[in-house]
Write a protein that binds this DNA or RNA. Sequence first.
DNA 1: TGGCTGTACTG
DNA 2: CAGTAC
DNA 3: GCCA
Length: 906
Amino acid sequence: MSSLDQFFSEQADRMSIPDEDIDSYVSRITSVMRTRKPLYSSALSQDGSDQSSSAPPPQESPRKRRRIADSDCQVQVSGPSTSSNSSESVQKADASAVPAASVKRKTPEHNPDSRTNKRLKADHTEASHDGTVHAPTGPVKDNAKQSRAQRSKKVSLPSLPQTELGLEIKHAAGSGDGNTRSTVRVSSDVAGAVTKSTDVDAKMVLQHAPDGSLDTSRPPITEHSRKGQSQNIKLIKTGNSVTRVDTSNVTTPFNSAIPSSSKIGAIGPVNEESTKKANPRTQATTKKSSSKKKSKEKLLPEQYAEKIMLAMAEKDLSKRKPETMYLKDMRIFFWGGDYSKASESTMRKMDILVDRGATLLPTFQPDQATHIVCDHIVTKGSLLAAINLKSLADIPDHIPTLKWDWIRTRDGKGRMARLHDHAAFPDRIHFESPDGVLDLRLGPREKKRKAFLEAPSKSEDNTEHSKISEFTEDKVARSRIGSSLIRPSDVVIGKPGPSATKESKSTSEEDPLACFYEQARAELAAEGPRNVSEYDSDTDGEGVQGSSSMVATKHGGHEAVQKRKFMYACDRKGEQPSNEICPNQDVIDMLEKLKQIHDTKGTADDKWRVLSYNKAVRGLRTYPKRIGSVKEAMQINGVGEKTAQKIMEIINTGALQRIRYENTEDVAVVTLFQGIYGVGPSVAHKWYANGCRTLDDLKNGKFGIKLSTAQRIGLKFYDDINTRMPRAEAKEIFDLIKPIALEIDPKLFVEIMGSYRRGKADCGDIDIMITRPTDDGKTHVGVLKKLLGRCHERGIITEDLNIPENWSDLENMYRGLCRRDENSRRRRIDFLTVPYVHRGAALLYYTGDDIFNRSMRMKANRMGYSLNQKGLFANVIRNPSDRREKLDDGTIIASATEEEIFKKLG
DNA sequence: TGGCTGTACTG
DNA sequence: CAGTAC
DNA sequence: GCCA
């Protein structure tokens, strides 16, 4: 128990932390802890970064003017000719620039092309200071053939990571109904204290072994059914402590492609023995972790929660200022997404909750909890597993599910932000009514479904559309992020007032365009080439609009105005096709997770697997009933034998062994890193192999990590970028920008695309297309640059991620960050300029979604056409040996309007 | 067994 | 050119 | 991993 004592004294220190900014607290602590133990923690919020700069990343020298922001992310869009006024944007040179010695510049002639003048290159630290920086990562990727060949002789896996957990949970097999119960025991004195201090149900008992770890035995693999009602303590996942598992299918871990000498500090699936000697750092790590085995570090999240609640109970709270205890009346279940052991991040966050006076519930108990707070990397499925419920709708209505950042929202007066702005999941959002009572606007699925089916129809097949919309959930969740793992949406549906119940039906009913897309998409998804004559009837409404007649005047021309209004009719109609209704939701969640695991591997093979899983999931979503057999599963479009078997495993056992096995630290960390804009599998793995585990590692340039400019920004605004915005905010920002554009040239054609145009209730980014009729001989050339300059001046656009190659092209592409106002989050924004004649194809393409695009293009191909964002081409001659090589671009047959293209494609 | 959308920017 | 993003 |  001496470790406990130690813990208490440390805890006392923590508790005396002044009521400072929570994130800097987390950041500070984490970075301190970091030196002791290379555990990963989840993202730190952007504002916490600045203090912990023990080793600041290499900074470019101040005299170098950069287009892309320095660490302060203030940007100059300036070109010599325009927007010189934008140079007033502050560009703080970071005084803490790295010692010059460690910075070597790339020789300019290395990149002699025209871009040299425009793009100021980031300095490259060819850092050789510890030799790790540029360690080649080995054959990260083979060509397809080779890897295919390798695939057949499956590389044997590194030995499974032994659980380092000092404790596991003792499961008592439940009765034959499939219920499994687990009990955690604690020595009685502790249990008593816990109960006393936390009101935790006394049924919970933990049993500590003498060294502080817990007595364990393996649970039966059969796993929990989720039916279990909650009188007892919930099951506890034992994470990656895995027993033998069928590994025949397991993809070779990515880092097996990395020379072992560079597997610095790899803790996960790497065989420790083999690397122990390789490198002093590894040795240190190994030693540390083994010496820690005994100490308090290896705790389940809930055990940590208990500990700190215990510690808290012993503290004299009377001297605490009450206003620092602003969570006082809350009984919070916090879920950090870590099953096996509490990560640094989780522990720190739990500390904060307790420190602020919350009662932290070690396990979720519906009758106890007042709030559920999720770390932002948490998926719906993960939370549901943690609280042992089947669906979000099973959570009692009075308990809001919130994102961690809600905790930080206390203002000067101690008021917290509104719950609905920080909902952890888009399908479960609480609004507070004036009397302070929680109001779950997005009610249980039953309600939704009803509203759905009873919705009055505008056209005879409207019901059909509704159904479609319900299923065609935008597949936005970038696969690499793994739909929700890092991307809990922050959604506000509609207006809190009148539209409480109807969000799911609006698009189909009232936005023909969205309807059109849904229909087209669903159809393409379902059948590929098939008679699509409905398109015509459906398109009629706006199909009349021809390119020639569309003369843009000051306000876009008469017809254009009509069309605008027409399309904007979808404004404010929050629409989120609910995918909750699917009877196979649990299967989908699992497959998504598996997909995400493959996505972190980053090999070509896995890339295609990801594609397949996407297709399978899409098929599953539209499948109306619970799947009963492998055969049945295989009927579903996109589901083959392998997936079908997995589906049945999920249905029968509630889990996938594959996931248990592969869900290791590297997956979690790589997933975390891949959430950074500009970081894909390759870079993420490189960093992991170099020893990075947390975002702070990256921020501080540990392990010789260098960030590209875009990555630096992506890291700084990690949370913002990975949070979707309410539809209304997208509109507000667009309404801010459009007038600025028209100010520059009133004849511009400015359109918002992307998920907004598709009628989504929440948007991941804002896509704006700019073009201009050429009938008076002028074009939109130069507009984008001017526009960006003005947006920068007004603080709408705050950072540039990448800028067009050539401002004088008719076709330009810009990516950056913007915000509605000073108090808003950063949002991703894209601008695209296209030749006027291509606007239809461009609109089509950028309105997406990607599934839709793929199908469209595939269809075009089959019909002998070629479709891209410029238009639909006929007579494309392709190289017979390599179909991708076009020998002849063919003739453009459609491009100006979407309808034109649709008609040609049938 | 080969293909799986097609393009642009970064470094 | 590889990697990333859309 | 699925499909033609």
